[in-house]
Structure formats: structure tokens, C-alpha cells
Design a binder for these strands. Structure first.
Lengths: 208, 208
DNA sequence: AGTTTTTTCGAATTACGAATAGAAAATATC
DNA sequence: GATATTTTCTATTCGTAATTCGAAAAAACT
């Protein structure tokens, strides 16, 4: 059994923690590509360079492992967006901030984090109880987006006649769906983001 | 073994065909809610009001059954949109047609067809070979959308500086993602569609 | 170097659900 | 109404992959 020699929040990372992370990384990678049903423990073990049985030294069950990948996925995306917003100049408009959030979310998803893309993919695949847990974790991230939209609307920067909840879900949907189709050969994610933001902000219709 | 007393395209539907459809309906319903991994044959059988073993009289395997649900899902969505476009007045603009297609796709997805919503959900969940097959089936539907966008652009009705492939995927993503979040209590799908179309066409930003 | 603790292994077990097959029931045919 | 055909049921088999467990190996400690 593992000893808990560390106090919460310790910074040094021992061998055991590194192995644990290696397993999580492997799981995120495989899950991202094969989904929940398609991912077997032996697949994860192979990538992590160990035997399937050994995984149980670190995680109580397959579900527990997957759940931690998903939790990490949401939290890391939240962090990435939050950090990006934090480093914006104070004079940035609410719309600027909204656009930055969209760009960051998309880039993070498709070319930075296996955890985040795996999480998106898994949301619709895991059993009901895990899903509940997951939705709870996502609530904080959802609130951030809700706030971004509300601020922009209250400042008169975006139109006020739309159901912002629906708009938010549609935006997230467009961004999240990219994990299903985006491949590097479709071009750099920055370009996708640019065009998407152009559409969302100014519309497809030509100005008269 | 079933006799093939019917010639292709016969209109009368015998008892056997009705049972077959009952199973497909049940499968679509369950798959829509539980996904690929979460759906067991006994679940489908229960809804179809029969024993799991009996399914094999109609389908060679679980995969075959799921594949037929998915094929039906894409084809029916294609039909719904095509029909809607066909009954539009000749003087309708290309943008009008594009909007009609978006609305139809969304409504069909969230409140008309378990087949269509199950299909969307399953795309990222099924094994690689089924996925290939599925993508092939979807190609026709994809072409329809590509054409709608291209026509609108060529007619000068939408801006010409955007990557239409990416835009198409983003639009489909926003619409498709609704199967993950939309519930009747979020309000009628018509309203969601209206707001989404407003955003896509005219943008969130207020006009100066 | 010897001892204890942590980590890994790999074979065995278990659980679950798809698939099969032969009997029974229902339905159609003559 | 008897016979043939189709459909369904039930119990069983089969395969796969998660999980367990005791032993071996590695690492840490004295």
C-alpha cells in the first residue's frame, strides 16, 4: 500500500507520482483516439509501458482512471482560458475577451491537451453516474462562459435579443465538435479559430 | 430462415418487416440515450418487447444492427433537409435556403428522429471500420451542405473571405452538439434555431 | 549487506454480455 | 384440421476484458 508521506499541496513529485501521471497521460492519449468503449486497459498499459494488472496499484478501477482524466481535462481547459484572460490588457473590451476565450479553448482542445479532447469525446459515452459527476465539475467552467457573454451584453457590445444560454451551448458545440473532425492537415487551428470568430461576431451575411 | 418473397421496393410491409422496424426503433431510442458502450442487447430487446436472443433472427450481429440505425439516421436527415429545400419557393435566396437547412437539421435532430440523434452520438464511439463506412454514407449529406454554402458565396450573399469547409464543420458542430445538451425544458427547438441562425448570419456584435 | 517497503509482474479468476442452437409457440398454407 | 413455415424463447456456450492475488523484482533505508 502507498504511504501518504506528502502533505496536501506538496510541490516535489516522487517517482510514484511520475508513474501515476504517466498512466494518466497514456489514458488520455488512448481515450482521445479510441473513446470509452474502444479503450482497453491493456492499450493504456502498453502506452504507459507496463502490464495491465499494475494499473491497479495506482487506480482502484478503470472507471476511476477515466474519471480522473476527465476531471483533469475540464480543469486544465478552465485554467488555460483563465490564464489567457488574466494576461489581457486592462483596456480589452468584453468582446475581445470573449474572442480570446474562444480561441484559447479551441487551440487547447485540438492541439494542446489530450486530456481536454478526450474529455469532450467521453462526455456522451460514459455511464450516467460518471456523467453527473462530470457535469458538476464543468459547472465552474460553464459559469465563466456565461459571465463572459453576460458582461459583453450588459456593456452593449453584443446584441441583447438572443437567448445567451443557447448561444453559449452552440458556441461550445461548434468548438467541441472540432475534436471529431479536425486533423492537422485541415490547416492550423489558428485559422479555423479566426474564421469561426469572424462568423460568430460579424455573421456570414454580407453587410449592406 | 426468412424467405425473400418480396421484390425490391415492394410497398406492402408484412409482420416480419414491422418487427424488424420495431427492433430498429428500440435500438435507436436506447442508443440515443445510452450510447454505444452503454447499450446492451437486452436493453434493446426489452424496449422491443422480446428476448435478446430473438434479435438474431433479424440481424446477424449487434454491429449490424447499430450500423443500420446509423445508416438510417443519416439518410433520414438528408431526406428531411432535401424535402424542405424542395418545397421552398423558387425565388428564395441562397441564404434563405441555407437557413432553412440549418433549422430543419436541428429540429429533426432534437425532436423528430431518434435515429438521427443516435447517429450523431455514435459517430465518435463506434469501431474504426464502422466509422469508415459511416463517413462514406455521410459524404452525400456533406456535399449538400457544401453546395449550399458555395452557392450562397458565389451569389455574393455571404462573405467570401472564409474557409467554407471549416465554417461548415463549425455549423454542423453547433447543431450536432445539441444532442448532448438540449432538453425540452430548454425551450422549443424553434427558438434555439432562430437565435443560432441570427448569430451565424448577422453576428453577435452590435451594428455600428 | 541485510532488511523493509514499494512497485511490478503475470497467471488465474471473475464478470459480463454477445452469440448459438434446439425446442416451443405462433402463424400461414393447403 | 393437418402440415409446413416462420417466429420466438430459453438455456448454454463462448470470448473478451476487467479485476485479483501471491510472488518476484526494484528501490529505499539502516
Amino acid at each position: 500500500m502507498r504511504s501518504d508521506r506528502k502533505t496536501a499541496g506538496a510541490k516535489a513529485e516522487g517517482k510514484s507520482d511520475k508513474t501515476r501521471r504517466r498512466i494518466l497521460d497514456a489514458a488520455a492519449l488512448v481515450l482521445r483516439h479510441k473513446g470509452f468503449a474502444g479503450t482497453r486497459l491493456v492499450d493504456i498499459a502498453k502506452v504507459a509501458d507496463m502490464q495491465a494488472g499494475s494499473l491497479y496499484y495506482y487506480f482502484g478501477s478503470r472507471e476511476e482512471l477515466v474519471a480522473e482524466v476527465m476531471r483533469t481535462g475540464v480543469c486544465s481547459a478552465f485554467d488555460a482560458v483563465t490564464r489567457r484572460l488574466a494576461e489581457m490588457p486592462a483596456e480589452a473590451s468584453h468582446v475581445d475577451r470573449l474572442c480570446a476565450a474562444m480561441e484559447t479553448h479551441l487551440l487547447f482542445l485540438v492541439e494542446q491537451s489530450d486530456y481536454a479532447s478526450a474529455t469532450i469525446k467521453l462526455i456522451g459515452q460514459v455511464p450516467k453516474d460518471m456523467q453527473q459527476q462530470q457535469i458538476a465539475t464543468e459547472r465552474t467552467y460553464g459559469k465563466l462562459w456565461k459571465q463572459l457573454l453576460r458582461d459583453a451584453r450588459d456593456a452593449g457590445e453584443i446584441r441583447a435579443d438572443l437567448n445567451l444560454s443557447a448561444i453559449r451551448m452552440m458556441i461550445m458545440g461548434a468548438l467541441n465538435w472540432s475534436v471529431e473532425w479536425h486533423r492537422p492537415e485541415n490547416g492550423p487551428a489558428e485559422h479555423i479559430a479566426r474564421d469561426f470568430i469572424a462568423m460568430v461576431m460579424h455573421g456570414l451575411a454580407v453587410r449592406r
